[in-house]
Amino acid sequence: MGTPRLTDVAVRAGVSMKTVSNVVNGTGSASPATRLRVQAAIEELGYRPNVTARRLATGRTGTVAVAVSSVTVPYFAEISNLIDRAARTQGLRVVIEQTNGERANELAILEERERGLVDGVIFHPVALEANDLADRQPGFPLVLLGEGPAPTTVDHVMIDNVAAAREVTTHLIERGCRRIAFLGTEREASTHTTSQRFDGYKKALRAAGIRLDRRLRLSVDYYSADDGHRAVTEALDSGLTFDAIACRDDALATGALHALHSHGLAVPDDVAVTGWDDLIISRHLWPPLTTVSPDKAAIVEAALRLLDDRIHGYQGPGRHEMIAAHLVDRQSTPAVRLREEPLP
């Protein structure tokens, strides 16, 4: 069989060419079941739309971009994969762009170079400030992810980092932990996400009457298991003591667990550990990791929905959607209070 054509997809799916065209272009009113059948036929046949013809006919490319700091960061890898899979069910292709968290690269995402190459961009900025986004209104559909500032004119999908960090820290306090380290503040300037999570941690301590000990703020250069291992190892070797570690993310928690095991400390009996992001690996660590779980599927659904609205002509004010996050309680934190002494 030669290169699959639109007619081949229509025959395989048992629908008209018009229906296939609607599914591929994201138009029309085909039912979800019909769209899934067409998408299955597209995947089986390996059909790839003629981007040039589509662009001439509709003014759109059928391609969206996802811009993140790095796909080596596990959370961004999972989110990018989920966006790609969801977009394909809508007949869209996804291209991934890495900014390395550098301001110049992130500013470039907002420039006109994206116009005509893709229909829209889902963007998770790390280094940009509020005025950067307010001063540069892109001439293409854009949806922001993450907890950084966003102008009222731009669509934005986020979670409540402060509330979730307060919840996970309170979880540790309720299980008897008193000297809770926070692993993951940057040695240089903190990102918006880190600042919010550290703020939630501080609020939980304050609410419980626990004094903040700055020595328990463990800094890293990067969000990796290696950096988590290094930071916790240095803290333990220096004689610092703690009975819990609230980690900025699961990658850092992975390194923290390794460091604790290497020093003969039992988790959670000696030190409890929590993470953030509920990565696939978190449930397979030992012990399985208690972690904050953002609803990643809901984040992806909201981002693609808002972007699709913009692509199809919505020009109203920015929609800011808060997505739920919940605590997943696993064996890296104790099931009952370990310590019964009064709060300091």
Rank of each mutant, 00 (worst) to 15 (best):
R60V: 06
T89W: 09
D249L: 05
Q90R: 15
P125F: 13
Q331E: 14
T52V: 13
Q331L: 14
P49V: 04
R206V: 14
T170N: 11
H263G: 07
V95K: 05
Y223R: 09
R187E: 15
L216I: 10
W286G: 00
F198Y: 10
G2W: 07
G275F: 02
Q137C: 00
L257T: 06
Y47L: 04
F198R: 01
S21P: 05
V11S: 11
L128E: 06
V15E: 01
V94M: 12
A253D: 03
T290R: 00
C247L: 10
L307F: 07
A225E: 10
E97I: 06
H258Y: 14
R305S: 11
N25E: 02
A165W: 02
S293D: 02
N131K: 13
A251S: 15
G275N: 01
G239Q: 01
A13R: 02
H263A: 14
P317C: 03
V66K: 00
T27S: 15
E102S: 04
S80E: 04
T241D: 13
A272N: 05
T58L: 14
T3H: 09
D155V: 06
L144C: 11
A104W: 02
T194H: 05
P4T: 08
Y201F: 15
D155G: 10
H320K: 11
A65M: 15
Q98N: 13
L133K: 09
R88M: 11
N131I: 10
A208Q: 09
A189W: 07
V64W: 02
R60K: 15
E114N: 12
S31V: 13
F198M: 02
H284E: 06
G139C: 02
H171R: 03
D250V: 07
V300K: 07
E340P: 00
V73N: 15
P344L: 01
T27H: 13
N161T: 01
E43L: 11
A251R: 08
V15N: 08
G255D: 03
L172G: 00
D119F: 04
E106F: 04
V126F: 03
T19E: 02
T193E: 13
W276M: 00
R283I: 03
I173D: 02
A335Q: 15
L307T: 08
T27Y: 12
G14L: 08
I245C: 10
Q98I: 05
P32K: 06
A10Y: 11
V121Y: 03
S16C: 12
I299K: 04
Y222K: 10
V24F: 05
S219L: 08
P149R: 10
E112P: 01
E234C: 04
L216A: 03
G101E: 13
V232K: 07
A127V: 06
A244C: 11
A127S: 15
E234A: 12
Y75W: 13
I122N: 01
G2Q: 15
M17L: 14
L279S: 05
S29L: 06
Q90W: 12
